[in-house]
Computed example of a mutant assay.
Amino acid sequence: MAQDSFDIAIVGAGIVGLAHALAATRLGLSAVVVDRDAQANGASIRNFGFVTVTGQEQGNVWRRARRSRDVWAEIAGPAGIAVEQRGLAMVAQRPEARLVCEAFLATEMAEGCTWIEGAAARAFLGDMRPTHLEGVLSSMIDLRVESRTAIPALAAWLEQGRGVAFRRGVAVHHVESGRLETAEGVIRAQHIIVCPGDDLTTLFPDALAKAEITRCKLQMLRLASPGYGLPATIMSDLGMVRYLGYAALPEAKALKRRLQAERPDHLANGIHLIVAQGADGSLIVGDSHHYARTPDPFASDQVDRLILEEFRAVFGSVPPVLERWTGTYASAAGHSIVEAPLEGVRLVVVTSGTGASTSFALAEEVIADLTDDRLGAAA
């Protein structure tokens, strides 16, 4: 008979839930992960797999990204997860973007970053042919995994290598202190962590509504291999007015004004460019951002055209499109919410699209808090 009592029960098998399972096992706690789906199919596998440190918001978010990146590096080998790429190349195409990069390099967040310009920048980019090039902000801190395979591999390793129990295809319909009621019976746990992703109605809907969480829909594409390797994951000027590590700098204001004049449709559709390369050479390209409580499921050809227009400006030509898809994630002001709706229960939602980049560190904080609570209660 399956075990039904654990130290920690986690609702949700996306990256946020899996990160909490890892943090629990590192403290020697028994853990179960319950998910209504038979396999991962949400935001955790529909993204770039890019563990982005450079450009994250200064302070706690950047610190969490640094720590999470280190955890990814630690577990990738044991979990059989390939690190597909290392580093980030911010391709600055406008003088205003160059000023943002120079300002960024003067901050503490620029550890591991360098500025490359002129012939050295073009040599660094290889066969890429940007329309204009001021230089490249290069970082070797960031890394990328293939989300479609990394998330299942992480779950399998947690189950087989670290003793985490999984209950898949099982809906949780009620949570109370020490107890989960599921479609297959009751699971008891001293502590419960609910990681609902962008499911805003099933568990603790009042708390999620109070946090003013909505949903963000994004569009992404996979392109055929361009026939050459990229030096790192690529971003462009549009990213400098979206990622707060750059966008919060005073120098970003001039860049945003210019982009509003030159790229108004891109900004209106929340488009910025990320291009990541898989082991087969294909390119994952995105993305856009549209917000609604219930986003429509349809992908706009016009939005894809805008994304590829920015791709062309950075790369020079566009390979054939192999796949198109949409994704959704929970969105609200700030990086995340961590609420305690009941004693021994935490509601955890990453609300900024940075789950892959920050969840491991966030989970360590949440598990440490719960562990302190347990020790305090025992005392």
Rank of each mutant, 00 (worst) to 15 (best):
Q3V: 05
D4I: 09
F6S: 08
D7F: 13
D7W: 09
D7Q: 06
A9V: 03
V11S: 00
G14N: 12
G17T: 06
L18I: 05
A19G: 07
A24I: 10
A24Y: 10
T25R: 15
V34K: 01
V34D: 00
D35F: 10
D37P: 04
D37F: 12
Q39Y: 11
G42R: 13
R46K: 13
R46N: 13
T54P: 05
Q56E: 15
R63T: 15
R63V: 08
A65Q: 03
A65I: 12
R67W: 02
E74R: 15
G77P: 00
I81Y: 12
E84K: 13
M90R: 11
A92K: 01
P95W: 03
R98G: 13
E102D: 14
F104N: 02
A110P: 02
G112C: 03
W115G: 12
F124V: 04
L125H: 04
L125Q: 01
R129L: 05
P130V: 00
G135M: 06
M140H: 14
L143Y: 08
V145G: 08
A153P: 04
L154H: 13
A155M: 08
L158D: 02
R162Q: 14
G163Q: 04
V164D: 01
V164C: 07
G169A: 09
V170C: 15
E176K: 09
E176P: 04
S177A: 15
G178Q: 10
R179M: 15
I187S: 01
R188N: 13
I192R: 07
P196N: 10
P196V: 05
D199S: 11
D199T: 06
T201D: 10
L203K: 02
P205N: 08
L208V: 06
L208N: 05
I213A: 02
R215H: 08
C216L: 08
L221M: 13
L221R: 04
A224E: 15
L230D: 13
A232H: 12
A232K: 01
D237A: 10
L238A: 12
G239K: 01
G245S: 05
G245K: 06
Y246W: 15
A247F: 10
L255K: 12
R257W: 11
L259D: 07
Q260Y: 00
Q260I: 00
A261T: 06
L267V: 03
N269C: 02
I271P: 01
H272K: 02
H272C: 04
V275N: 01
S282V: 03
D287Q: 07
T294S: 07
P295Q: 06
F298T: 11
Q302M: 00
D304K: 11
L308H: 05
E309K: 13
E310G: 03
R324K: 14
W325E: 09
T326I: 14
A333Y: 07
E339F: 00
G344R: 08
R346V: 08
L347A: 07
V348G: 04
V348C: 14
V350M: 00
V350F: 00
G355Y: 04
S357T: 10
T358F: 03
F360G: 04
F360K: 00
V366H: 09
L370V: 06
